[in-house]
Design a binder for these strands. Structure first.
Lengths: 153, 153
DNA sequence: ACAGCGGATGCATTTTTATGCAGCATGGCT
DNA sequence: AGCCATGCTGCATAAAAATGCATCCGCTGT
């Protein structure tokens, strides 16, 4: 029980996404988050969001919600995301594709972006797929090593 | 920032006190602050406290209110310098003079410069005197309110 | 001296948040 | 399998925070 195995799949994904949203735009109330989450395929109520924010270490400063250092850190935490990634494939020397469980791609991508690895040029994610661009073979190798170490795939 | 022009004396004092309280103990709701303030001789309602907190840059993290780095800095740093300032006098609408204990003027001036208050055009300090230039009466008033709140003079 | 401004407040209320309370699903144990 | 403990939810509701409005005050400019 090293991990909250229960329904954590959706929970973790939602929280990661929540963090990302907070970095991207100004949010002034939990109801907004519920709305945004819904648009990105997550179903949640204000109740859950309220709990998530506390769990994430998000603070409300003035009118807006802001990520704290702790929260930012949790984004870069791959441990919770590990079970989401189901496979990794390379397509040429510039593209690496990660397959994830439905609806979790965004969350994983967020963490990868946050990590800001030098070999990664950019990422693009859908519902269950993440494209990771690298400059060349050398970089791709570097990336794959990391991914393997982190996700075991 | 703090442009209490009116009876700001009390306002600023209250806000400073508010910050102090937040540094000293854990506060979970505005009603508590109202209570504590009252005990220390300040009369205020939850409405005012709500506004004060926003103004001060205080955030609510989880259940408790916490001072932002900025908030803590703006008030904390001066506390140590407070005993150095012995008096304040204005000379026209553009010049405010602070008298300090011998040899401490520089220190105080540095702090004032660092604060980078918008109403301050510039400062010049000697051994026991600090000249603070302001653009006009309004700015000077703003400045004096700050000084009064911080140094009690 | 008077009219006008802008900041600051309190009050009454509206908005937002936080939570007590089941209800479920999952994992571990006996 | 039968049970219990744990974690996560939504709902309904309590609790807390934000705000519209009317008012006051002190300062400015005429």
């Amino acid at each position: 029980m090293l991990r909250p195995m229960t329904d954590s799949t959706d929970t973790s994904a939602r929280r990661s996404l929540l963090a990302k949203i907070l970095r991207e735009r100004t949010i002034e109330r939990q109801a907004e988050l519920v709305e945004v989450l819904r648009k990105r395929g997550h179903r949640a109520t204000q109740s859950s969001v309220s709990r998530d924010l506390r769990e994430l270490g998000v603070a409300k400063l003035g009118r807006r919600y802001v990520l704290t250092d702790e929260a930012a850190r949790s984004i870069g935490d791959f441990s919770a995301l590990r079970p989401f990634v189901t496979s990794r494939v390379t397509a040429g020397a510039n593209l690496t594709v990660l397959k994830t469980k439905i609806g979790t791609a965004q969350s994983v991508a967020v963490a990868i972006d946050a990590a800001a690895w030098p070999e990664v040029v950019g990422t693009l994610s859908g519902d269950d797929t993440i494209f990771i661009a690298t400059r060349g073979a050398r970089e791709q190798r570097c990336l794959c090593e990391r991914l393997l170490a982190i996700f075991g795939r």
